[in-house]
Amino acid sequence: MPRGACPERHEILRYAQNDTKRRAGNDKGMFFGSFQTAFRIVGEMPGNLREKIRKYLAKQAHLPSVGPVSIWTILFVIAPLGFILYFSFLTAGDFGQILPIFTLENYQALARPVVAEVFLRTLLFSLATTMICLLLGYPLAYFIVMYGGRWRIHLLLLVILPEWTSYLIRLYAIRMLSGRAGLINSALLSLGLISSPLGILYNPSAVVLTLVYGWLPLMVLPVYASLVGLNPSLLEASADLGATPFRRFFTVTLPLTKGGILAGIILVFIPCIGDWLVPLLMGGTKTFMAGNLVYLHFISAANIPAGSTIGVALTAIVLIIMYLCIKAGGKEATERII
């Protein structure tokens, strides 16, 4: 479309020129003057003109904006994902090399019962972890915000503190605590409460609970933020209008912290679904998760295309969950994640 073909553009320019002429005499200073003029022009414009500006800008939206953000996104998000997507359609050679032979075999392999079972388990573990994090994290954040008083920040710090230690070290620490010869078992044994060591580790609940331990702060933080942002007079208004504390929570507090909850769900779910360290260290062969399959394909089987395919599938799942959460929570959820 030629530039002159946008009638709105002309009208806006004409308005701005007239306005500048009108104001030319009384602007104070270059810098603030220009700002004031800009605000005034927008503020005093008749409504239909503002509508025209909006339309004009919408017409320009097809122009790609090239800035640091675009470069960053292309370099670190689009490109790696593109490579993985590309690899996932290729064939692995006998010595681990990638052969440029197009195939859908890798995707067909996803439907194999063994692989499908791992995916289902991954989903189940991740959902369970996310739900437990929510059920523990929400009350925790609620308690800190409502009753923490001047200790709020300190209490929140205690929640985040473990995050600053290496994940691997913490996992080994848990193993030392809860292994067959670990601290918990030896204490219970010496107290005579049990006669043989408890099998705490190497089962599904060990994996899920360790994941919960690892990612709980990511649930607490956004929920905390949304609770802090809650206007206390809304709670008072609710009580004043006759809502019992129980009803008040479900009609005011919960809906208004939905953004924080959904953000927490996304933040916990994403690392869970890709985790391979926890099932490796805390689980047995029956707790294999999708991340372990990627690891196997890349490192042990040297089949990069097959591993890439699983990566693509995981990314797809994450995107679907994110889409659902953002759709349910609107802009607030997205803002809370960031």
């Binding site: 206007n231 007079s233 008072e236 208004a237 004043d240 005011v252 208004l256």
Partner: peptide, 11 residues
């Protein structure tokens, strides 16, 4: 019933 200075309408 109270009408608050900040109105406190449920957003």
């Amino acid at each position: 019933s109270i009408v608050f200075q900040t109105l406190a309408l449920f957003p």
